[in-house]
């Protein structure tokens, strides 16, 4: 769990005036969404899971945020953003080509699929993609553009839609209709996360246990 906001759980506010009915429905759905792929095939899924582990590495002392499943869900329902950089194909095609490209690069460098590489090999490969060091492109798609506009953007933003991620950064989370009262510097409503000052972890933990 979060060291900065020890014991803070935004879900503890589910039955308070900070969550309206629609929010409860939406977050319940997110927490219950399928953990298995519905769009990607087995090989693509394996590569995506490995990529997600490197883009947002997660602690092992809590259930993981199912990042790969969240990306797969976006592709399955084809939920788009409202714009597309002209250098990229539509998002489903972009992800298919991108996952194939990452995997092909792993095989070229290490004679093994991306998922089978060590963490440091995976990081080095992803960094090379990000920095535009790939030679040529992936079936017409520039790898560095795919990395910036799809791979990194989609994974990073998906992670921070999950309540577990909100706990880690001390975000107040849903706030309708109660909202907030204390607006100034270093002010906290009793239903907001308490941040642990150095040596103050116990106190923060006690305050976070009372949130509701």
């Amino acid at each position: 769990m979060s060291r900065r906001f020890p014991g803070y759980d935004v879900l503890a506010k589910r039955h308070t005036p900070s969550w309206n009915e629609k929010t409860r429905q939406v977050i319940d759905q997110r927490l219950a969404s399928p953990r298995e792929p519905r769009f990607l095939d087995a090989e693509e899924w394996q590569t995506l899971c490995a990529i997600c582990d490197r883009i947002v590495p997660q602690p092992t002392d809590r259930p993981p945020v199912p990042l790969a499943a969240m990306i797969d869900d976006k592709l399955y329902v084809d939920r788009r953003d409202g714009y597309r950089d002209f250098r990229l194909p539509p998002q489903r095609e972009a992800w298919r080509k991108g996952l194939a490209g990452v995997d092909a690069e792993a095989r070229r460098r290490h004679s093994a699929g991306f998922a089978a590489l060590s963490a440091s090999e995976q990081d080095a490969l992803l960094l090379a993609v990000q920095q535009g060091e790939m030679i040529g492109n992936w079936d017409g798609m520039p790898p560095a553009i795919f990395f910036a506009k799809r791979l990194l953007f989609d994974i990073a933003t998906a992670y921070y839609t999950h309540p577990t991620a909100w706990n880690e950064i001390g975000f107040g989370g849903p706030a309708s209709p109660r909202g907030y009262v204390r607006m100034g510097f270093d002010r906290r409503d009793p239903w907001e996360a308490a941040e642990a000052a150095p040596g103050g972890e116990q106190q923060a933990r006690r305050e976070n246990a009372r949130i509701g």
Binding site: I55, F153, A156, Y160, A165, I169
Partner: peptide
């Protein structure tokens, strides 16, 4: 809010991995 902020931090600073998590932890 966090999703938007993650897009800015990842997009502008090109951070990922532990560096992204560390930067996001400063959210408040």
């Amino acid at each position: 809010l966090p999703m938007t902020w993650a897009g800015v931090v990842a997009g502008s600073r090109k951070l990922w991995g532990q560096a992204l998590r560390d930067e996001m932890e400063k959210y408040n």
